[in-house]
Design a protein around this nucleic acid. Structure first.
Length: 575
DNA sequence: GCCGTTTTCGGCCCGACTGTTTTCAGTCG
């Protein structure tokens, strides 16, 4: 096959270029328009020409020609666990599998025992292909961060039962706090590696053992979640943590960086390529410092400039690494739904003012905002809506009065509302109702599909209202369910910065919206962010940490987030 | 195919695990 016969290096080159394009902070199309495609790392004259071809004509002659020699059935099989390009190609060609439905055709052949007859395959590989096909059917989406955390915690607890284990950590995307998680990675610091592996594969709630070696093992647990465990002795545990925290892109970039210093990195430590000596490292801090880099927090390890920043940080030069925001910096929750019934358009909260206030005090907050949805438009006249919002205003005034006089710790409550942005950019409450509110959040709850231009115009018009201060769950995405809306973020961020508007990071694990990569853009542009849990039940208020994770992944510092500030500052900026 | 404060040619991140073979290729993270 031409694609492979022409060399592995070219494949790697294309993969690198594809990764670089995917990780671009700007659109490749914009770079094409400016004639700067070759500025993308890994993109040279040849790949730039192919890309130009695609932007110009919608397709690439080069790839159309190449793809003629490969059946589409090959690409259908590659997603199967354990099937890569070579095996897929071999199976399709030797068994004459035709698209579509290559996977189910393959399954029929497996059940007939045709695979084991092929050269290079046997009974075992045939069985593992069958398992891969069955798993593939059951496996669906990536898992939400909070779910993955809860599953991982059970396994962490199980591993702590092993007496030889001195420390357990979650690694991979879970440690980097990515919003959705594929596999769960766990590291064990142990004095007896083989005993620890044995303990792991005996996890009571496993479905089956996928791999099992001397140093690592993988199991499948219900829900078809793969759990990988790596075990290491204490003296090299830092190298293991670093290696399996990733991301893949970070590690590749870091190893390339290390090579410029004649060093080679692995999960065992740092090898000096001149002396061939391996330096084992017990901690990650030592690992990074040995490369003349400042310690890089896991959330930043995506190869988006953190290595360069850590290098200059280590030399005390600017720009260094950001001093990332932490959960304890948060002084209030700016999106909470109560059960005070104003006959809302979307779901009402479940918990009362009283229990929410109590929880806010437990969390050490100075303030919070009650941001119930606006009264439903279809079921009420303008006057009824205004009356409902007046009732809410009076109830919160009473609440604030009693808080001032009855509590040891003063907590202040903003009287706010989460107001729907209608498809034309109007807000869903009558003008007179705004007088009863401190400020409002505006958000999209309908008509998610509009052109980028119209959607941007819609949001800017909504934000133009003097009481509209926060653009809540800005993309409207729901993880695993719905893509976000299309917006011209440059325009939204510029407008927000110039007009004292704030962009929310919604902490609901199903949303995590603004997404991390847009947070990074917003931070770079000096846009001020807010955080809200969007709690509809008092128990959701502890979700604030997820917003903090997103902010950290977006390089945000305390100064970038409004609700790290004391009440009087926040009041001044919102009212 | 890309890339260079050792290089415009000769390399390209690193190692574990599996299955099918007797020394390794393919896949994965």
């Amino acid at each position: 096959m031409y694609l492979y016969a022409s060399g592995k290096s070219r494949i790697i080159a294309y993969e690198r270029a594809a990764d670089a394009v995917e990780h671009l902070s700007s659109e490749a199309k914009d770079l094409y328009d400016e004639g700067k495609l070759e500025d993308i790392p890994g993109v040279g004259a040849s790949i730039a020409a192919n890309l130009s071809d695609i932007f110009k004509t919608g397709k690439s002659k080069h790839f159309e020609a190449l793809l003629k020699s490969v059946s589409p059935a090959v690409f259908e099989l590659i997603p199967l666990e354990g099937i890569g390009p070579k095996l897929a190609y071999k199976l399709v060609n030797e068994l004459k599998i035709k698209p579509p439905d290559a996977i189910s055709k393959l399954k029929k052949l497996v059940l007939k025992g045709e695979i084991a007859k092929l050269e290079g395959f046997g009974e075992d590989s045939q069985a593992s292909i069958l398992k891969a096909i069955d798993d593939y059917k059951e496996s669906g989406n990536r898992h939400l961060l909070n779910y993955a955390e809860s599953v991982a915690n059970l396994i962490v607890d199980w591993m702590k039962n092993d007496a030889s284990v001195t420390r357990v950590d979650t690694l991979g995307s879970l440690r980097r706090k990515v919003s959705t998680i594929g596999d769960i990675d766990i590291a064990c610091c142990t004095n007896d590696v083989s005993k620890t592996i044995e303990h792991f594969v005996n996890y009571p709630d496993k479905k089956r053992v996928l791999d099992r070696g001397d140093k690592k093992a993988s199991i499948i647990i219900p829900g078809n979640i793969q759990v990988d465990l790596m075990a290491q002795r204490p003296n090299a545990y830092g190298a293991l943590l670093q290696h399996f925290t990733g991301s893949k892109h970070h590690n590749i970039a870091l190893r390339e960086y290390a090579r410029t210093k004649s060093k080679s990195l692995s999960e065992y430590g740092i090898r000096n390529l001149k002396t061939k000596k391996l330096k084992k490292l017990a901690s990650e801090e030592e690992f990074y410092h040995s490369l003349s880099l400042s310690y890089i927090p896991p959330e930043l390890r995506e190869d988006t400039g953190e290595i360069q920043a850590a290098e200059s940080d280590f030399k005390n030069q600017t720009p260094g690494l950001p001093k990332l925001i932490g959960l304890t910096d948060i002084k209030g929750d700016l999106q909470i739904h109560s059960n005070f019934d104003i006959e809302t358009s979307h779901d009402l909260g479940i918990s009362s003012y009283r229990v929410i206030i109590q929880k806010a005090q437990e969390l050490g907050y100075e303030y919070l905002a009650f941001t119930d949805h606006n009264p439903s438009r279809s079921k009420h006249s303008d006057k009824q809506i205004i009356d409902l919002i007046k009732r809410k205003k009076e109830s919160i005034e009473k609440l604030n009065y009693s808080l001032m006089h009855n509590n040891k710790r003063v907590i202040s409550v903003f009287n706010s509302l989460e107001v729907d942005i209608k498809s034309n950019g109007d807000l869903s409450i009558p003008e007179a109702a705004f007088d009863c509110l401190d400020f409002v959040l505006v958000s999209i709850h309908s008509v998610f599909r509009l052109s980028k231009e119209l959607m941007t115009k819609r949001v800017l018009q909504a934000l133009n209202h003097p009481k509209a201060k926060i653009f809540a769950h800005p993309t409207g995405r729901k993880l695993n369910e719905r893509e976000g809306v299309e917006l011209d973020w440059d325009k939204i961020f510029d407008y927000a910065k110039e007009n004292n508007k704030f962009i929310e990071i919604n902490a609901d694990p199903m949303r995590l919206d603004l997404p991390d990569y847009l947070v990074k853009d917003a931070v770079k542009r000096g846009v001020m962010l807010t955080m809200g849990t969007d709690a509809h039940h008092v128990d959701h208020m502890i979700n604030m940490r997820y917003a903090v994770y997103v902010a950290r992944r977006g390089w945000a510092q305390k100064v970038n987030v409004l609700n790290t500030r004391p009440f009087k500052d926040v009041k001044m900026l919102l009212i």
